[in-house]
Nucleic acid binder design. Structure first.
Length: 474
RNA sequence: GGCCCGUUGGUGAAGUGGCUUAACACACAUGCCUUUCACGCAUGCAUUCACGGGUUCGAAUCCCGUACGGGUCACCA
Protein backbone atom coordinates (compact mmCIF):
# COMPACT_ATOMS: atom_id res chain seq x y z
CA UNK A 1 0.00 0.00 0.00
CA UNK A 2 1.22 3.42 -0.89
CA UNK A 3 2.13 5.60 2.03
CA UNK A 4 0.13 8.81 2.26
CA UNK A 5 0.71 11.62 4.76
CA UNK A 6 -0.91 14.96 5.08
CA UNK A 7 -0.13 18.43 6.27
CA UNK A 8 -3.34 19.90 7.67
CA UNK A 9 -2.83 23.49 8.79
CA UNK A 10 -5.57 25.90 9.66
CA UNK A 11 -5.35 29.15 7.73
CA UNK A 12 -4.85 31.47 10.67
CA UNK A 13 -2.26 33.83 9.30
CA UNK A 14 1.35 33.00 9.72
CA UNK A 15 3.45 29.96 9.21
CA UNK A 16 4.97 29.11 12.51
CA UNK A 17 8.28 27.21 12.46
CA UNK A 18 6.62 24.47 14.52
CA UNK A 19 4.03 23.96 11.80
CA UNK A 20 6.65 23.97 9.10
CA UNK A 21 8.64 21.42 11.02
CA UNK A 22 5.59 19.14 11.14
CA UNK A 23 5.13 19.60 7.40
CA UNK A 24 8.75 18.63 6.81
CA UNK A 25 8.45 15.45 8.83
CA UNK A 26 5.16 14.56 7.18
CA UNK A 27 6.80 15.10 3.82
CA UNK A 28 9.79 12.98 4.81
CA UNK A 29 7.70 10.07 6.03
CA UNK A 30 5.86 10.00 2.69
CA UNK A 31 8.85 10.54 0.43
CA UNK A 32 11.04 8.08 2.28
CA UNK A 33 8.77 5.35 0.89
CA UNK A 34 7.97 7.09 -2.36
CA UNK A 35 4.52 7.99 -1.05
CA UNK A 36 2.24 10.96 -1.48
CA UNK A 37 2.14 14.18 0.48
CA UNK A 38 -1.26 15.84 0.73
CA UNK A 39 -2.19 19.36 1.76
CA UNK A 40 -5.54 19.79 3.44
CA UNK A 41 -6.85 23.09 4.73
CA UNK A 42 -8.64 22.82 8.05
CA UNK A 43 -10.81 25.90 8.14
CA UNK A 44 -13.67 24.71 10.32
CA UNK A 45 -13.12 27.53 12.76
CA UNK A 46 -14.97 30.40 11.15
CA UNK A 47 -13.64 33.02 13.51
CA UNK A 48 -9.95 32.40 13.12
CA UNK A 49 -9.90 32.31 9.36
CA UNK A 50 -7.49 34.85 7.84
CA UNK A 51 -7.52 36.14 4.30
CA UNK A 52 -4.47 35.16 2.26
CA UNK A 53 -3.32 32.52 4.72
CA UNK A 54 -3.66 29.68 2.23
CA UNK A 55 -1.49 31.51 -0.28
CA UNK A 56 1.12 31.96 2.44
CA UNK A 57 1.13 28.23 3.12
CA UNK A 58 1.69 27.51 -0.54
CA UNK A 59 4.42 30.10 -0.81
CA UNK A 60 6.22 28.74 2.23
CA UNK A 61 6.15 25.12 1.13
CA UNK A 62 7.33 26.07 -2.31
CA UNK A 63 10.27 28.07 -0.97
CA UNK A 64 11.22 25.08 1.12
CA UNK A 65 11.18 22.78 -1.87
CA UNK A 66 8.31 20.67 -0.55
CA UNK A 67 6.26 19.34 -3.43
CA UNK A 68 2.56 18.77 -2.82
CA UNK A 69 1.01 15.78 -4.57
CA UNK A 70 -2.60 16.59 -3.81
CA UNK A 71 -4.20 19.72 -2.44
CA UNK A 72 -6.61 22.58 -3.11
CA UNK A 73 -4.51 23.93 -5.99
CA UNK A 74 -3.33 20.71 -7.56
CA UNK A 75 -6.46 18.64 -7.12
CA UNK A 76 -6.47 14.87 -6.74
CA UNK A 77 -8.87 11.98 -6.44
CA UNK A 78 -9.89 12.69 -2.87
CA UNK A 79 -11.07 16.29 -3.04
CA UNK A 80 -12.19 18.76 -2.10
CA UNK A 81 -9.12 19.45 0.04
CA UNK A 82 -10.64 22.30 2.01
CA UNK A 83 -12.77 21.29 4.95
CA UNK A 84 -15.33 24.05 4.58
CA UNK A 85 -16.19 22.49 1.21
CA UNK A 86 -16.77 19.07 2.74
CA UNK A 87 -19.48 19.99 5.22
CA UNK A 88 -22.18 17.56 3.93
CA UNK A 89 -19.74 14.73 4.39
CA UNK A 90 -19.34 15.39 8.09
CA UNK A 91 -23.11 15.75 8.46
CA UNK A 92 -23.67 12.46 6.75
CA UNK A 93 -21.19 10.52 8.86
CA UNK A 94 -22.27 12.10 12.14
CA UNK A 95 -25.90 11.24 11.49
CA UNK A 96 -24.91 7.75 10.47
CA UNK A 97 -23.48 7.22 13.95
CA UNK A 98 -26.64 8.61 15.52
CA UNK A 99 -28.75 6.16 13.55
CA UNK A 100 -26.50 3.32 14.61
CA UNK A 101 -26.91 4.37 18.23
CA UNK A 102 -23.22 5.25 18.59
CA UNK A 103 -23.85 8.98 18.92
CA UNK A 104 -26.68 11.20 20.13
CA UNK A 105 -28.14 14.69 19.99
CA UNK A 106 -27.21 16.89 22.92
CA UNK A 107 -29.23 20.01 23.68
CA UNK A 108 -27.26 21.23 26.64
CA UNK A 109 -26.26 24.87 26.27
CA UNK A 110 -22.80 26.23 26.81
CA UNK A 111 -24.04 28.11 29.88
CA UNK A 112 -25.37 24.94 31.48
CA UNK A 113 -22.13 23.15 30.82
CA UNK A 114 -20.07 26.04 32.18
CA UNK A 115 -22.02 25.93 35.42
CA UNK A 116 -21.43 22.21 35.74
CA UNK A 117 -17.78 22.77 34.98
CA UNK A 118 -17.44 25.37 37.70
CA UNK A 119 -19.19 23.13 40.20
CA UNK A 120 -16.83 20.31 39.39
CA UNK A 121 -13.93 22.67 39.84
CA UNK A 122 -15.17 23.65 43.30
CA UNK A 123 -15.26 19.96 44.22
CA UNK A 124 -11.75 19.71 42.76
CA UNK A 125 -12.92 17.15 40.29
CA UNK A 126 -12.23 16.89 36.61
CA UNK A 127 -15.36 17.76 34.67
CA UNK A 128 -16.70 15.20 32.28
CA UNK A 129 -20.01 15.61 30.54
CA UNK A 130 -22.40 13.20 32.23
CA UNK A 131 -24.19 12.11 29.05
CA UNK A 132 -27.62 13.16 30.28
CA UNK A 133 -28.91 13.88 26.77
CA UNK A 134 -28.18 10.33 25.71
CA UNK A 135 -31.20 9.31 27.81
CA UNK A 136 -33.67 11.51 25.96
CA UNK A 137 -36.58 9.69 24.35
CA UNK A 138 -37.25 9.81 20.64
CA UNK A 139 -40.27 12.06 21.20
CA UNK A 140 -38.34 14.49 23.38
CA UNK A 141 -35.67 14.75 20.73
CA UNK A 142 -38.19 15.26 17.96
CA UNK A 143 -39.92 17.98 19.91
CA UNK A 144 -36.74 19.89 20.64
CA UNK A 145 -35.64 19.71 17.05
CA UNK A 146 -39.04 20.91 15.87
CA UNK A 147 -38.74 23.83 18.25
CA UNK A 148 -35.39 24.72 16.67
CA UNK A 149 -33.44 24.19 19.85
CA UNK A 150 -29.78 24.09 18.84
CA UNK A 151 -27.95 20.83 19.37
CA UNK A 152 -24.59 19.20 19.00
CA UNK A 153 -23.87 15.57 18.20
CA UNK A 154 -21.79 13.66 20.71
CA UNK A 155 -20.22 10.28 20.43
CA UNK A 156 -20.97 7.70 23.13
CA UNK A 157 -17.68 6.69 24.66
CA UNK A 158 -17.11 3.44 26.54
CA UNK A 159 -17.19 3.89 30.32
CA UNK A 160 -14.80 1.13 31.20
CA UNK A 161 -11.86 -0.68 29.78
CA UNK A 162 -8.57 0.64 28.46
CA UNK A 163 -7.74 2.09 25.08
CA UNK A 164 -4.24 1.67 23.82
CA UNK A 165 -2.29 2.13 20.68
CA UNK A 166 1.26 1.94 19.44
CA UNK A 167 3.00 5.11 18.50
CA UNK A 168 6.03 4.74 16.24
CA UNK A 169 7.98 7.16 18.41
CA UNK A 170 6.54 6.86 21.90
CA UNK A 171 5.65 3.19 21.94
CA UNK A 172 2.53 1.95 23.65
CA UNK A 173 0.24 4.64 25.01
CA UNK A 174 -2.75 3.60 27.06
CA UNK A 175 -5.50 5.44 28.82
CA UNK A 176 -8.51 4.32 30.82
CA UNK A 177 -11.75 4.91 28.98
CA UNK A 178 -13.46 6.38 32.03
CA UNK A 179 -11.36 9.52 31.55
CA UNK A 180 -12.78 10.07 28.10
CA UNK A 181 -15.74 12.37 27.64
CA UNK A 182 -18.56 11.85 25.15
CA UNK A 183 -16.87 13.95 22.52
CA UNK A 184 -18.62 16.47 20.34
CA UNK A 185 -18.59 15.57 16.67
CA UNK A 186 -20.76 18.27 15.19
CA UNK A 187 -21.00 21.73 16.70
CA UNK A 188 -24.29 23.62 16.96
CA UNK A 189 -23.28 25.73 13.95
CA UNK A 190 -23.28 22.43 11.96
CA UNK A 191 -19.53 22.56 11.58
CA UNK A 192 -17.53 19.52 12.62
CA UNK A 193 -15.05 19.68 15.47
CA UNK A 194 -11.42 19.37 14.58
CA UNK A 195 -11.15 15.82 15.88
CA UNK A 196 -14.12 14.58 13.93
CA UNK A 197 -13.32 16.24 10.62
CA UNK A 198 -9.78 15.03 11.00
CA UNK A 199 -10.75 11.39 11.30
CA UNK A 200 -13.32 11.53 8.52
CA UNK A 201 -10.90 13.20 6.14
CA UNK A 202 -7.90 11.08 7.03
CA UNK A 203 -9.94 8.00 6.35
CA UNK A 204 -11.56 9.21 3.13
CA UNK A 205 -8.24 10.54 1.86
CA UNK A 206 -6.64 7.21 2.70
CA UNK A 207 -4.00 8.69 4.94
CA UNK A 208 -1.80 5.85 6.18
CA UNK A 209 0.46 7.71 8.61
CA UNK A 210 -0.69 10.47 10.89
CA UNK A 211 2.31 12.63 11.77
CA UNK A 212 1.70 15.43 14.25
CA UNK A 213 2.91 17.11 17.42
CA UNK A 214 2.87 15.20 20.67
CA UNK A 215 0.22 17.42 22.19
CA UNK A 216 -2.13 14.91 20.55
CA UNK A 217 -0.54 11.95 22.27
CA UNK A 218 -3.19 11.69 24.94
CA UNK A 219 -6.17 12.46 22.72
CA UNK A 220 -5.32 9.87 20.10
CA UNK A 221 -7.38 7.14 21.83
CA UNK A 222 -10.41 9.34 21.14
CA UNK A 223 -9.57 9.32 17.46
CA UNK A 224 -9.20 5.57 17.52
CA UNK A 225 -12.60 5.16 19.15
CA UNK A 226 -14.03 7.05 16.21
CA UNK A 227 -12.29 4.79 13.71
CA UNK A 228 -13.67 1.82 15.64
CA UNK A 229 -17.21 3.21 15.64
CA UNK A 230 -17.12 3.33 11.87
CA UNK A 231 -15.26 0.07 11.55
CA UNK A 232 -12.42 1.76 9.70
CA UNK A 233 -8.77 0.72 9.81
CA UNK A 234 -6.62 2.92 12.02
CA UNK A 235 -3.61 4.76 10.65
CA UNK A 236 -0.09 4.53 12.01
CA UNK A 237 0.73 7.31 14.43
CA UNK A 238 4.00 9.20 14.56
CA UNK A 239 3.99 11.83 17.27
CA UNK A 240 6.75 14.38 17.11
CA UNK A 241 8.38 15.76 20.24
CA UNK A 242 7.32 19.27 21.06
CA UNK A 243 9.43 22.23 20.02
CA UNK A 244 10.25 24.39 23.03
CA UNK A 245 12.12 27.65 23.58
CA UNK A 246 15.31 28.04 25.59
CA UNK A 247 13.22 28.11 28.78
CA UNK A 248 11.58 24.81 28.01
CA UNK A 249 8.21 26.34 27.20
CA UNK A 250 6.23 25.47 24.14
CA UNK A 251 7.43 27.73 21.33
CA UNK A 252 4.94 30.54 21.15
CA UNK A 253 4.15 33.06 18.51
CA UNK A 254 5.60 35.75 20.69
CA UNK A 255 8.98 34.09 20.54
CA UNK A 256 11.32 36.15 18.38
CA UNK A 257 11.86 34.86 14.87
CA UNK A 258 9.39 32.05 15.22
CA UNK A 259 7.58 32.45 11.95
CA UNK A 260 9.09 31.36 8.69
CA UNK A 261 8.38 34.72 7.10
CA UNK A 262 10.26 36.50 9.90
CA UNK A 263 13.29 34.35 9.32
CA UNK A 264 13.26 34.99 5.59
CA UNK A 265 12.84 38.71 6.21
CA UNK A 266 15.95 38.62 8.33
CA UNK A 267 17.90 37.04 5.55
CA UNK A 268 17.81 33.38 6.47
CA UNK A 269 17.92 30.92 3.59
CA UNK A 270 14.93 28.58 3.18
CA UNK A 271 17.05 25.49 2.63
CA UNK A 272 19.05 26.28 5.77
CA UNK A 273 15.85 26.68 7.77
CA UNK A 274 14.55 23.34 6.48
CA UNK A 275 17.90 21.80 7.34
CA UNK A 276 17.74 23.13 10.87
CA UNK A 277 14.08 22.27 11.43
CA UNK A 278 14.71 18.67 10.38
CA UNK A 279 17.19 18.44 13.24
CA UNK A 280 14.52 19.36 15.75
CA UNK A 281 13.72 15.98 17.19
CA UNK A 282 15.58 13.94 14.63
CA UNK A 283 19.19 13.01 14.28
CA UNK A 284 20.67 11.06 11.41
CA UNK A 285 22.63 7.89 11.95
CA UNK A 286 25.79 9.54 10.70
CA UNK A 287 27.20 12.70 12.21
CA UNK A 288 26.32 14.93 9.31
CA UNK A 289 24.30 18.00 10.13
CA UNK A 290 24.25 19.83 6.85
CA UNK A 291 22.00 18.35 4.22
CA UNK A 292 19.49 19.37 1.58
CA UNK A 293 15.96 17.98 1.35
CA UNK A 294 16.88 15.36 -1.20
CA UNK A 295 19.65 13.98 0.94
CA UNK A 296 17.45 14.26 4.00
CA UNK A 297 14.91 11.95 2.41
CA UNK A 298 17.67 9.39 1.96
CA UNK A 299 18.92 9.48 5.53
CA UNK A 300 15.57 10.01 7.23
CA UNK A 301 14.24 7.26 9.42
CA UNK A 302 11.19 7.80 11.63
CA UNK A 303 12.64 5.39 14.18
CA UNK A 304 15.32 7.98 14.89
CA UNK A 305 12.86 10.63 16.00
CA UNK A 306 13.34 11.16 19.69
CA UNK A 307 10.94 11.71 22.53
CA UNK A 308 12.43 14.52 24.56
CA UNK A 309 11.33 18.03 23.63
CA UNK A 310 13.51 19.69 21.00
CA UNK A 311 14.87 23.11 21.88
CA UNK A 312 14.61 25.77 19.20
CA UNK A 313 18.11 27.17 19.39
CA UNK A 314 18.66 30.33 17.38
CA UNK A 315 22.45 30.00 17.79
CA UNK A 316 22.46 26.67 16.06
CA UNK A 317 20.17 27.96 13.32
CA UNK A 318 22.60 30.82 12.80
CA UNK A 319 25.52 28.46 12.60
CA UNK A 320 23.77 26.34 9.96
CA UNK A 321 22.67 29.41 8.06
CA UNK A 322 26.19 30.87 8.08
CA UNK A 323 27.37 27.61 6.63
CA UNK A 324 24.92 28.01 3.74
CA UNK A 325 25.98 31.62 3.25
CA UNK A 326 29.64 30.65 2.95
CA UNK A 327 28.75 28.06 0.33
CA UNK A 328 26.62 30.46 -1.73
CA UNK A 329 27.51 31.65 -5.21
CA UNK A 330 28.72 35.24 -4.86
CA UNK A 331 25.88 36.57 -7.02
CA UNK A 332 23.27 34.89 -4.85
CA UNK A 333 25.00 36.17 -1.77
CA UNK A 334 24.84 39.68 -3.20
CA UNK A 335 21.13 39.44 -3.87
CA UNK A 336 20.61 38.20 -0.35
CA UNK A 337 22.58 40.91 1.44
CA UNK A 338 22.54 43.97 -0.78
CA UNK A 339 18.89 44.89 -0.12
CA UNK A 340 19.60 45.06 3.60
CA UNK A 341 22.52 47.37 2.99
CA UNK A 342 20.49 49.60 0.68
CA UNK A 343 17.71 49.80 3.19
CA UNK A 344 19.95 50.71 6.11
CA UNK A 345 22.45 53.09 4.55
CA UNK A 346 22.67 55.80 1.96
CA UNK A 347 24.75 54.31 -0.85
CA UNK A 348 24.25 56.90 -3.56
CA UNK A 349 27.84 58.18 -3.54
CA UNK A 350 29.27 54.62 -3.50
CA UNK A 351 30.09 52.85 -6.73
CA UNK A 352 29.20 49.25 -7.53
CA UNK A 353 32.78 48.01 -7.19
CA UNK A 354 32.95 49.38 -3.67
CA UNK A 355 29.65 47.83 -2.63
CA UNK A 356 30.58 44.42 -3.99
CA UNK A 357 33.95 44.47 -2.27
CA UNK A 358 32.27 45.43 0.98
CA UNK A 359 29.81 42.55 0.73
CA UNK A 360 32.53 40.16 -0.32
CA UNK A 361 34.77 40.58 2.69
CA UNK A 362 31.90 39.70 4.99
CA UNK A 363 30.65 36.56 3.25
CA UNK A 364 32.50 34.37 5.73
CA UNK A 365 31.47 36.46 8.67
CA UNK A 366 27.71 36.74 8.84
CA UNK A 367 25.07 34.30 9.99
CA UNK A 368 22.10 35.81 8.19
CA UNK A 369 21.52 38.51 5.59
CA UNK A 370 20.45 41.27 7.89
CA UNK A 371 23.60 40.95 9.97
CA UNK A 372 25.43 42.72 7.14
CA UNK A 373 23.96 45.94 8.53
CA UNK A 374 25.52 45.72 12.00
CA UNK A 375 28.79 44.42 10.78
CA UNK A 376 29.33 47.20 8.23
CA UNK A 377 28.23 50.04 10.50
CA UNK A 378 31.81 51.21 10.84
CA UNK A 379 31.78 52.23 7.17
CA UNK A 380 28.83 54.55 7.64
CA UNK A 381 29.13 55.91 11.17
CA UNK A 382 31.86 57.61 13.15
CA UNK A 383 30.44 57.61 16.64
CA UNK A 384 31.71 54.54 18.41
CA UNK A 385 32.59 54.14 22.06
CA UNK A 386 35.78 52.26 22.84
CA UNK A 387 35.71 49.84 25.75
CA UNK A 388 38.50 49.36 28.30
CA UNK A 389 40.19 46.55 26.45
CA UNK A 390 40.57 48.69 23.34
CA UNK A 391 41.69 51.74 25.31
CA UNK A 392 44.34 49.60 26.97
CA UNK A 393 45.79 48.62 23.61
CA UNK A 394 45.86 52.25 22.50
CA UNK A 395 47.88 53.05 25.62
CA UNK A 396 50.66 50.63 24.73
CA UNK A 397 53.96 52.52 24.43
CA UNK A 398 54.50 51.51 20.80
CA UNK A 399 51.07 52.70 19.73
CA UNK A 400 51.93 56.34 19.08
CA UNK A 401 54.85 55.64 16.82
CA UNK A 402 52.95 52.94 14.94
CA UNK A 403 50.01 55.24 14.28
CA UNK A 404 52.23 58.18 13.33
CA UNK A 405 54.30 56.13 10.90
CA UNK A 406 51.31 54.41 9.39
CA UNK A 407 49.61 57.74 8.87
CA UNK A 408 52.60 59.00 6.94
CA UNK A 409 52.71 55.86 4.83
CA UNK A 410 49.01 56.17 4.03
CA UNK A 411 49.38 59.85 3.15
CA UNK A 412 52.06 59.07 0.62
CA UNK A 413 49.99 56.53 -1.29
CA UNK A 414 48.98 58.02 -4.60
CA UNK A 415 47.41 54.96 -6.17
CA UNK A 416 44.78 53.78 -3.65
CA UNK A 417 44.88 49.98 -3.97
CA UNK A 418 44.69 47.11 -1.51
CA UNK A 419 48.14 46.09 -2.63
CA UNK A 420 49.62 49.50 -1.79
CA UNK A 421 47.90 49.52 1.59
CA UNK A 422 49.53 46.19 2.39
CA UNK A 423 52.85 47.71 1.44
CA UNK A 424 52.16 50.65 3.72
CA UNK A 425 51.50 48.24 6.59
CA UNK A 426 54.67 46.40 5.82
CA UNK A 427 56.68 49.62 5.67
CA UNK A 428 55.28 50.58 9.05
CA UNK A 429 56.51 47.29 10.45
CA UNK A 430 59.98 47.83 8.95
CA UNK A 431 60.33 51.41 10.13
CA UNK A 432 59.03 50.97 13.67
CA UNK A 433 60.24 47.43 14.32
CA UNK A 434 56.82 46.68 15.83
CA UNK A 435 55.02 43.61 14.56
CA UNK A 436 52.14 41.26 15.20
CA UNK A 437 49.36 42.24 17.49
CA UNK A 438 50.99 45.46 18.67
CA UNK A 439 51.27 46.61 15.08
CA UNK A 440 47.81 45.64 13.86
CA UNK A 441 45.58 46.16 16.80
CA UNK A 442 46.11 49.91 17.31
CA UNK A 443 45.57 50.52 13.61
CA UNK A 444 42.52 48.28 13.44
CA UNK A 445 40.95 49.88 16.49
CA UNK A 446 41.64 53.45 15.35
CA UNK A 447 40.36 52.82 11.88
CA UNK A 448 37.42 50.46 12.51
CA UNK A 449 36.68 50.81 16.24
CA UNK A 450 36.70 47.02 16.37
CA UNK A 451 39.13 44.33 17.41
CA UNK A 452 37.77 41.75 15.01
CA UNK A 453 36.97 41.95 11.36
CA UNK A 454 37.95 40.88 7.87
CA UNK A 455 41.33 41.54 6.26
CA UNK A 456 42.71 44.87 7.41
CA UNK A 457 44.02 46.13 4.04
CA UNK A 458 40.64 45.46 2.41
CA UNK A 459 38.86 47.21 5.23
CA UNK A 460 41.12 50.23 4.92
CA UNK A 461 40.74 50.33 1.17
CA UNK A 462 36.97 50.37 1.55
CA UNK A 463 37.05 53.12 4.13
CA UNK A 464 38.96 55.36 1.75
CA UNK A 465 42.07 57.44 2.27
CA UNK A 466 40.32 60.47 3.63
CA UNK A 467 38.33 58.64 6.30
CA UNK A 468 41.30 56.57 7.35
CA UNK A 469 43.50 59.65 7.77
CA UNK A 470 40.86 61.47 9.72
CA UNK A 471 40.22 58.51 12.03
CA UNK A 472 43.95 58.06 12.61
CA UNK A 473 44.21 61.73 13.63
CA UNK A 474 41.44 61.63 16.17
C1' G B 1 -6.09 18.41 40.48
C1' G B 2 -6.69 13.70 37.02
C1' C B 3 -4.36 11.54 32.86
C1' C B 4 -0.11 11.37 29.34
C1' C B 5 5.05 12.34 28.21
C1' G B 6 10.00 13.72 29.19
C1' U B 7 14.91 14.42 32.34
C1' U B 8 22.58 12.63 29.25
C1' G B 9 28.41 18.43 29.75
C1' G B 10 27.71 25.74 29.51
C1' U B 11 24.09 24.46 25.04
C1' G B 12 21.94 21.05 21.28
C1' A B 13 22.29 15.95 21.02
C1' A B 14 24.20 10.33 20.00
C1' G B 15 23.51 6.07 22.84
C1' U B 16 17.66 1.00 23.57
C1' G B 17 22.03 -4.47 28.81
C1' G B 18 28.85 -5.68 27.80
C1' C B 19 32.34 -2.71 21.52
C1' U B 20 31.30 3.74 26.23
C1' U B 21 37.69 5.06 30.41
C1' A B 22 29.61 8.41 27.13
C1' A B 23 29.85 9.97 19.82
C1' C B 24 29.17 14.41 17.17
C1' A B 25 28.00 19.63 16.81
C1' C B 26 27.57 24.70 18.94
C1' A B 27 29.97 27.61 22.61
C1' C B 28 34.53 28.13 25.36
C1' A B 29 40.04 27.55 26.05
C1' U B 30 44.85 26.59 23.96
C1' G B 31 48.15 25.69 19.77
C1' C B 32 49.23 25.91 14.37
C1' C B 33 48.39 28.85 9.97
C1' U B 34 47.66 33.97 8.44
C1' U B 35 52.42 40.31 9.25
C1' U B 36 46.34 40.92 14.11
C1' C B 37 41.38 38.98 14.61
C1' A B 38 38.31 35.93 11.97
C1' C B 39 38.21 31.65 8.47
C1' G B 40 40.57 26.80 8.36
C1' C B 41 43.20 22.91 10.95
C1' A B 42 44.62 20.43 15.64
C1' U B 43 44.01 19.63 20.87
C1' G B 44 41.39 20.17 25.58
C1' C B 45 36.53 20.51 28.07
C1' A B 46 30.70 14.95 31.77
C1' U B 47 35.37 9.57 36.47
C1' U B 48 29.46 10.30 34.69
C1' C B 49 24.02 9.98 32.45
C1' A B 50 17.84 14.32 37.77
C1' C B 51 17.77 11.66 42.69
C1' G B 52 16.91 7.05 45.72
C1' G B 53 16.18 1.92 45.66
C1' G B 54 15.91 -2.82 42.91
C1' U B 55 16.90 -6.74 38.82
C1' U B 56 21.71 -8.56 36.65
C1' C B 57 28.19 -11.42 36.53
C1' G B 58 27.43 -6.44 34.20
C1' A B 59 22.70 -0.56 33.59
C1' A B 60 22.82 5.96 30.87
C1' U B 61 20.24 1.72 28.84
C1' C B 62 15.25 -2.87 32.35
C1' C B 63 11.72 -2.30 36.99
C1' C B 64 9.73 0.68 41.23
C1' G B 65 9.52 5.25 43.94
C1' U B 66 10.69 10.60 44.50
C1' A B 67 11.82 15.39 42.46
C1' C B 68 11.67 18.68 38.54
C1' G B 69 9.94 20.18 33.59
C1' G B 70 6.27 19.99 29.83
C1' G B 71 1.61 18.54 27.43
C1' U B 72 -3.61 17.61 27.80
C1' C B 73 -8.35 17.79 30.01
C1' A B 74 -13.30 23.44 24.92
C1' C B 75 -19.40 23.70 20.59
C1' C B 76 -9.95 25.91 19.24
C1' A B 77 -7.36 23.72 15.74
Amino acid sequence: MKIRTRFAPSPTGMMHVGNLRSAIFEYLVAKKSDGDFILRIEDTDQERKVEGAVELIYETLEKCGIIINEGPNQGGNFGPYVQSERLELYQKYAHQLVEEGKAYFCFCTEEELNIQRQEAELRKEAFLYDGRCSHLTKDEIKEKINNNIPYVIRQKMPKEGISKYDDLVYGEISIENRFLEDQILLKSDKYPTYNFANVIDDHLMEITHVVRGNEYLSSTPKYNLLYSAFGWPKPEYIHLPMVVDENGKKLSKRHGASSFADLINQGYIPSAVVNYLALLGFSPETNEEIFDLEHLIKIFNPKRINKAPAVYDVKKLQWINSHYIKKMEFNDYVSLTKPFLEEAYDLKDKNEEWILELLKIYQNHISHGKEIVEVTRLFFNNDFELDEEKEAILKEETTDIVLKTFKEEISSISDWTIENISIALNNTKEKTGVKGKLLFMPIRIKVSYQMHGPELPNTIWLLGKETVLSRLSK
